[in-house]
Amino acid sequence: MKRKGIIITLGAILVLLIGVFVASLTSSDNDTATYSGSDNGSEQAGIENEEQRTVRIGILQTTSHPSLDEITAGAIEGLAEHGYVEGENAEIDFQNAQGDQNLMNTMAQALVEDGADLLIGIGTPASQAFANATSEIPIIMGAVSDPIGAGLVESEDEPGTNVTGVKDQAPVEAQLELMNAVLPEASTIGLLYSSGEDNSRAEAKRATEVIESMGLEPVTYTVSSTNDIQQMVASMSQEVDVIYLPTDNTIASAFDTVVSEADRYDMPLIPTVDLMIAQGGLVTVGINQKQMGIESGRMAAEVLNGQDPSTFPVFVLSEGDILVNQEKAEHLNVTIPESILEDAVIIETRE
């Protein structure tokens, strides 16, 4: 009887142990399922967060001028048109160095250190400041005349760096042919630009070659800052027949001074930028600055979407409209040929 009791006790213990073991397995399976579900949920949440993540974009403008302002506005518009809207899924930090190179470098470094996902340089100096500050964050050039000469890309077809964007190749030959048609008696052509800007030097070199090929005499004048402009224009006005102005941020920022001084001597001005006609230039074949910015914004959006800037070809914007300031022509007693006026956009002087 005693032996039978021991057997029953052992049997009960065995059943109890089996129950505990089975319960343990069930609990483990539940924990695994719970963990797996949690992991899948976290992964899904991560995807959703990535889709909803706000990108940070730094924009650095070289200086204040209507043409550069238009490019900046166009870049923001281009970003929005391609899915990156400020205040919704894009945070844009805009800085303007007002032509101060040291300040420009400081601003570029700050935007890099603040963790920008992409940088847009408005003008050659701003783009160079970004390139000096980082070789990793993608940089979009918002208007650079000579990206290779400025050391920003290795090739326009395949940049080979973290920089790509829009090249504003002024139609120099068309501009100078227009000048010659409007001012056929002009034989000495003055070129005014800043000695410190790579883009200006490159464009002035192109212009010099075209002027010489036309059988005219180019004379080069350079300034180191806006402080030199008034006196330089006064000197040029006594030595040349017309002043041609390559794309130049320093000249652009003080173009009102250029116009004011040139008007004192009835000196015609042939700028390369469309908005300068409204400020007092005579004629030009001008590239639309707003469109240049929109193209920059488009390229920025494509890079944010995964396009590699090192293999993303530079976009060249080189065609423009004939622009005529008829009021300025009348002031200078210049008769614009009807054949030109038929195809031209007439621009009124901005007050």
Results as ranks from 00 to 15, higher is better:
Ile7Thr: 10
Glu330Phe: 07
Leu111Cys: 06
Ala131Gln: 11
Ile347Tyr: 02
Arg206Glu: 14
Gln289His: 11
Met267His: 13
Glu295Gln: 14
Asn227Ser: 15
Arg56Met: 12
Ala133Pro: 06
Asn180Lys: 14
Gln175Met: 09
Thr208Asn: 05
Glu295His: 12
Pro218Phe: 05
Met236Ile: 05
Ala90His: 07
Pro313Gly: 09
Asp248Tyr: 05
Val210Cys: 07
Ser194His: 10
Leu60Pro: 08
Glu86Leu: 01
Gln109Arg: 14
Leu68Lys: 08
Ser67Lys: 04
Ser213Val: 05
Thr226Arg: 11
Thr349Trp: 03
Thr349Ile: 08
Glu48Met: 11
Ile140Asn: 06
Ser127Trp: 03
Asp117Lys: 03
Ile92Gln: 09
Phe21Gln: 12
Thr284Asn: 15
Asp146Tyr: 06
Ser296Trp: 07
Gly5His: 12
Phe312Val: 03
Tyr35Leu: 15
Asn49Phe: 13
Gly37Val: 00
Tyr244Ile: 06
Pro66His: 05
Leu10Val: 15
Thr226Lys: 13
Arg3Lys: 11
Asn180His: 13
Asp248Cys: 02
Thr311Pro: 03
Ser296His: 08
Thr62Arg: 06
Asp308Gly: 09
Ala75Phe: 08
Gly5Asp: 14
Glu77Ile: 04
Thr349Cys: 01
Gln326His: 05
Pro66Trp: 06
Ser225Asn: 05
Ala204Trp: 03
Pro313His: 09
Leu282Asn: 07
Ser28Tyr: 15
Gly306Ile: 03
Ser145Ala: 15
Ala133Cys: 04
Met292Trp: 00
Ile76Gly: 09
Ser194Ile: 11
Glu209Arg: 10
Glu154Asp: 14
Ser127Leu: 01
Ile57Glu: 07
Val240Cys: 01
Glu77Lys: 14
Glu209Val: 10
Pro125Trp: 03
Ala204Ile: 02
Val219Trp: 00
Asp39Val: 13
Val258Ala: 02
